[in-house]
């Protein structure tokens, strides 16, 4: 993995892209916009499952409207995130909190996908099951933890 990171960082395309202030700012813009779209749309569906948002609509209606934007945001955030990672791949790979961030991110995504998959079933019940609310709460907390871990990577490990 260390060799892969070194090769990635020394790739001429990656060096050229990351040495331009305009292009690296564009990567940051795509990363933030994509991430806000992922977290905002997932959080609203989680809050609807918890019964504290958009109660005039069913959770399924809100999920069908918002989850396509979660996937769109995820594509933007992942592609730009990979290109930002590639520019300092060895530093990121060596940063312990970056690994924590990626693990928490994967757990948050798994919880979000599980909610998306189960919402129509939960909605057929007369009241939202306690298990559904627990998963939605865990999903929300995992996204907050993902943001915190991402911020700590630069604050503690000095990368990014």
């Amino acid at each position: 993995m260390q060799h892969f990171c070194e090769a990635l960082q020394q790739n001429s395309w990656i060096i050229a892209l990351n040495s331009s202030i305009v292009i690296s700012s564009l990567f940051e813009l795509c990363h933030y916009a994509g991430f806000f779209l992922v977290v905002g749309s997932t959080a609203l569906v989680d809050l609807r499952v918890l019964g504290v948002a958009g109660r005039s609509q069913t959770a399924t209606a809100m999920s069908e409207q918002l989850f396509p934007w979660m996937w769109t945001g995820l594509i933007f955030a992942s592609v730009s995130g990979f290109l930002m990672f590639a520019g300092d791949a060895t530093d990121f790979y060596g940063a312990s909190l970056f690994r924590v961030k990626m693990l928490v991110l994967l757990a948050a995504l798994a919880a979000g996908i599980f909610v998306q998959w189960q919402v129509p079933r939960w909605d057929r019940r007369p009241t939202m099951p306690l298990g559904a609310k627990s998963v939605a709460l865990v999903s929300l907390l995992l996204w907050v933890a993902t943001i915190l871990a991402a911020l700590e990577v630069s604050a503690i490990n000095g990368v990014g």
């Binding site: 916009a33 977290v39 905002g40 934007w69 945001g73």
Partner: peptide, 17 residues
Amino acid sequence: QLTHFSGLSLWIGTNFA
């Protein structure tokens, strides 16, 4: 920063939607 970014996720995410 977490407070700022969590708020922005809700604000910008829902604005974009």
